[in-house]
Nucleic acid binder design. Structure first.
Lengths: 327, 327
DNA sequence: CTGAAAGCGCTTACAG
DNA sequence: CTGAAAGCGCTTACAG
């Protein structure tokens, strides 16, 4: 900017004014400055600008991984931002990437929230998070009061279990996820509610627990499937874990869906590829990203009349892993 | 930082010193400052720090879209950065996102390259790019001299065509991509080279061109397949376009691979799902990201003894869309 | 061992 | 209409 000012024979204050399109610059000066900017290929520094200003028109996003669903979320965010003039900065910390340690959201957020961004989205935080600027969580932790966007996990889980009940299943097992996450809690709650509504008992022996990592489903799946009085169906709180249930069933010589029906949750791309293809509950990551960006815009603008916890509908996708129980 | 200094009863210079772990602070002072930092939950501002310092230990990355391959690239980058203490910032401009306009790489880069990042990676740029800090391109434009990482497209294309030749095909069509990109050029070059090596003529009538967007393959596919003397096989410069060729063949009542063999390039997830599953050339986006991050590290460190254009090997994945020609 | 001061690249009242 | 100056939150020679 200094060079531009000298080249145009004006002060840096004037250059700043034309860059920002402020009033009170003569046409002559303006065109000279523009010419100098053009010639020198000047671009204003985001860093310096954001340090000085309170508003940057940039949203931040922090995530602990880049999976295909992350790409979907990002696409949704960008779609919501398109045409608003808002840009997006994603911050990824290389050390906590492979194996995030508690507090990763907070630390990454701190890097962005100084003055760089007007607000941030955090994808699947593990704990509540604080910041001077607005923050919205995609898939918040349980009992979180922060603004958030999440799939309608409760309804989705009820739908999944009702699908199994409709096929005639009565002994339905469940494998849950990381119980501190609201999503895991709601999915389990939906399982219980659907059984209760059908006047069926909730048998603790039919409930296992993983932490959403696929491998963690193996042990509970074995515990559920090895006994003679095994369930005829299992509802699993994530597709990743459901796929492992499929593997365990195969190991034990159980045919899916002949001997066992399996329903997952998420509808990740791999689910359609599985043998048999997995029946699951679709949650639109794209829509989660979209709604999160919209909510954050409202928060930054200061319009808070809408509820701050938003839900996105889910949908049952019936494929090959479910069938009536064998008699 | 001001608050921390006051709370600890020292100057901000001292606070800065303990934050950065510099020598020359007494143990007493240090512990008091640490306590104040802890109590106030202080985190240093990335923006202010980067403005003052020349080194930030943050790499930047710009992309014009978030597809599943982008996520793969990002995973590769993060893997290379893991343990180095380097973080990653991704900048996405909401206006050029849906439909990038020429110069998008340069503009996004300018936002990051002020003082925020030590260097940047740009994913599939459409033109050469300049910056004060090092930049490496993933899939550069043709004839680009900038540091870059790209799949060994030439060898991959030769392998694809040799696979068809080995099956007995002699009339092999080609549908190319955006010819300004090095990848498109090399894939076409490989097609020509393989035919020439097999003493087969390169027939211009068998060469069509799209721009890598799947839809752009439809017209050239029709032009190739509607004539009576259609080729018995088509090699397509991307999977997205190859999938469209499959659709066109179906419309025309051609059986794949009975009447027509098709080979793609990229090995995107959809290719394994297609009916029939697509034979293709796998390029590891993960490895492209990994190598790009490594190259950028070398560039930033100033060690330039290795070549600046790097190649990542490709691999033939044979699935269901190729077979010997029907006699 | 510690602090006052300059300065990174900008923006914005305040004078003129 | 334009410029000199203060200050955003830091770091780093320079004194002491």
């Amino acid at each position: 900017m200094h060079d531009v000012a000298r080249s145009a024979g004006v002060s840096i204050a004037t250059v700043s004014r034309v860059v920002n399109g402020h009033y009170g610059v003569s046409a002559d000066t303006m065109s000279q400055v523009r010419a100098a900017i053009e010639e020198l290929g000047y671009e204003s520094s985001l860093v310096a600008t954001s340090l000085r200003r309170n508003r940057t028109n940039v949203f931040g996003l922090v995530t602990h991984s880049f999976e295909s669903y992350t790409a979907e979320v990002l696409k949704g965010v960008m779609e919501a931002l398109n045409g608003t003039g808002l840009d997006l900065i994603i911050y990824a910390n290389s050390d906590t990437f492979a194996s995030p340690s508690p507090g990763w959201e907070q630390r990454n957020l701190a890097r962005l929230s100084g003055t760089l961004t007007d607000g941030c989205i955090v994808v699947t935080p593990w704990s509540e998070v604080k910041s001077r600027t607005p923050v919205v969580a995609i898939d918040p932790v349980r009992d979180s009061t922060m603004p958030s966007v999440t799939a309608d996990n409760l309804t989705g889980a009820v739908t999944a279990v009702n699908h199994l009940l409709g096929l005639g299943h009565r002994r339905i097992g469940f494998i849950g996820g990381r119980s501190s996450l609201a999503a895991a809690w709601a999915r389990e709650e939906g399982y219980r509610a659907a059984l209760t509504d059908a006047d069926l008992p909730v048998d603790p022996a039919l409930i296992g627990r993983g932490d959403f990592h696929p491998e963690t489903a193996i042990a509970p799946a074995r515990a559920l499937l090895e006994p003679a009085d095994r369930p005829t169906a299992i509802f699993t709180a994530s597709d990743g874990m459901a796929l492992k249930v499929l593997e365990v069933a195969r190991e034990l010589g159980l045919d899916v869906p002949g001997d066992l029906s399996v329903v997952g949750f998420d509808n990740i791309p791999e689910s359609g590829l599985a043998q048999p293809a997995l029946t699951t509950i679709d949650q639109s990551m794209h829509q989660l990203g979209y709604e999160a960006a919209r909510l954050l815009q409202e928060l930054v603008a200061g319009s808070t009349d809408q509820p701050l916890q938003r839900f996105v509908p889910t949908e049952l996708v019936v494929r090959e892993s479910t069938a009536p129980p064998s008699t």
